[in-house]
């Protein structure tokens, strides 16, 4: 079972991701509510993939991706963005994120993106 870390400052969004992916066979091994906590939790839990919001307190999702990828090359991070954040998504991809999904979430799209990212053999 693939292990997922979910990072979003809104518990609403964390719960929604959990409800979408757990029935599909993913295990949510941890949650983080800011950009500092997600890096700490990554180090602690070593998940297969992180689903990370771009806009978070303390440290942005983009900074957190940079930090995770620097410390753990090959890490898989999927950004959760909103419409109108295309420039930030590009920045996150350049920082090392593997893919992105757009809010409001479409369950099929979330699951297929996650599957695609985890299939990629880096």
């Amino acid at each position: 079972m693939k292990r997922v870390l979910v990072a979003d400052d809104a518990s609403f969004m964390r719960q929604m991701i959990r409800d979408i992916i757990e029935p599909e066979g993913y295990e949510v091994v941890g949650e983080a509510s800011d950009g500092v906590e997600v890096v700490e939790k990554f180090q602690e839990l070593n998940p297969d993939v992180v689903m990370m919001d771009i806009v978070m307190p303390k440290r942005s999702g983009i900074d957190a991706v940079k930090s995770i990828v620097e410390k753990f090359p090959g890490s898989k991070v999927v950004m959760c963005s909103a419409l109108g954040q295309e420039a930030l998504v590009m920045e996150a991809i350049q920082a090392g994120a593997k893919d992105f999904i757009v809010k409001p979430f479409k369950p099929d799209s979330v699951v297929s993106t996650l599957g695609k990212v985890l299939e990629k053999d880096d």
Binding site: D9, A10, M13, M16, A82, K103, P104, F105
Partner: peptide
């Protein structure tokens, strides 16, 4: 903080189809 709060409300409202809240919070975020 105000930016993030507006952004977060926009995301939640959008997921529930509360279009009027999504639109206003998006404009405030901008």
């Amino acid at each position: 903080t105000v930016f993030r709060m507006a952004h977060s409300i926009k995301g939640m409202a959008g997921s529930l189809g509360y279009d009027s809240i999504t639109e206003l919070s998006h404009l405030l975020e901008d």
